[in-house]
Design a protein around this nucleic acid. Structure first.
Lengths: 129, 129, 129, 129
DNA sequence: GTGGTCTAGACCACT
DNA sequence: GTGGTCTAGACCACG
């Protein structure tokens, strides 16, 4: 399991872990009952504080994405939790707006911004295969 | 000038102000040399502390979006701040990636994400006329 | 008498007026008993508030550079006030340090910084003739 | 790290901190990834309010001189911030002009001003070794 | 009236 | 422990 941290991005480390594990679940890199690395192991791999990993796993458990077996570790849930359509459009809406505003503010045309996004999406789709 | 705060969102108040003023600038609801509400006035309108508004205006000034005249107030800058091409693509790149990843993570197709962005851009372009 | 204001520099307007009048005195563009423009006149010429000019003239009078004749206006003093050597080196010292620090911080060599200063000094000397 | 405040100079405290840290960076008393004192620590050492230190560190971060890691502290940046040649000459130009004008205004000769700058630069170069 | 700075003290998020 | 945000209230500088 590869997790890439950006320590200088300002985004919380535990949040980056949560996001990337969610991503692996959605893209089926992780499926039901797969075992996650132990807290100590992951903390050591990423050279971060174990409590940070604890916080990430707590959040994933709370979101219904993983479950814990005492003495055995953490595992991916079989059922992917559903997100309401409303919640989803709110989440995506924030990002669309921020991209649109920043791009136009920096003098790009709508067309250029769309192209940049398309390119990014193609990149990711490619990796998913 | 209407600013709407979401006090329970967890997003910093000063950041919400910054984002909304940036939005008004790209959508041309605010143009060069328009006067912003005074710090005290805006703080009073939003029922928040003046120093919070100061922090928002600080950010906007650092970003080159507004300028301040002592004893007179704060105003929108006429010229788009000059940024290197490299810097610009870095800034926009962060936003494109985050939209792409979030959208796909939430189960949207590339096509749906592009459409959402296109709609947002059209919205803004419409207001600019 | 030409005074050039930089309204966007952050430096107080009254201070810019004071500095430039001091400069004219030192460079003999203004000499003993020359009459300064009236407060209203100067304020109108510079499109600024008369009270700002009042503040500048107050400071010049306090510094012993000008004197007032009721009903007649303000005039340059014959004796140039002396500055202590200590005071002078303190004032200049602040500026030398700030130029040295900023220049080196931005990656210039000592030689480049000295050349830039030499050029600036030559420019000014030229105008003084 | 020694910072000396002049509380009666009229110069803002946060600015004095910024200037002195910049000085330590150019004279290599502080180098890449050095840890700055924590906000609370420095505030306590200087007997000032922590928010004043926050403001100083904000400025330094905006200037690209330091970076912050939540829960860890503030650190000196390794790389010199990239600035356009145009921007750089504007920044240095302001300081050269102000030194030139102030020096001449106070009755120094061009030669004396250049010598003062040279001495300051030598001082810093010496410390860098 | 405007913005600029500072204090004292609080609560939260992150490691 | 670290930094991040916010409040309440004060005083100063400027136009």
């Amino acid at each position: 399991m590869y997790i890439h941290l950006n320590l200088s991005s300002g985004a919380p480390i535990y949040g980056q872990i949560v996001d990337q594990i969610k991503y692996m679940v959605v893209s089926r890199a992780l499926v039901g009952d797969d075992k996650l690395p132990s807290i100590r192991q992951l903390a050591s791999d990423l050279s971060i504080n174990p409590t940070t990993v604890v916080k990430a796993y707590d959040e994933l458990e709370h979101a219904g994405i993983i479950y814990r077996r005492r003495g055995q570790g953490c595992f991916i849930n079989t059922q992917v939790p559903s997100i309401t359509r409303k919640e989803r459009s709110r989440l995506v809406g924030e990002h669309t707006r921020s991209l649109a505003v920043e791009g136009l503010r920096l003098g790009l045309s709508s067309q250029e911004i769309l192209s940049a996004l398309e390119e990014e999406l193609n990149n990711i789709e490619e990796k998913r295969k």
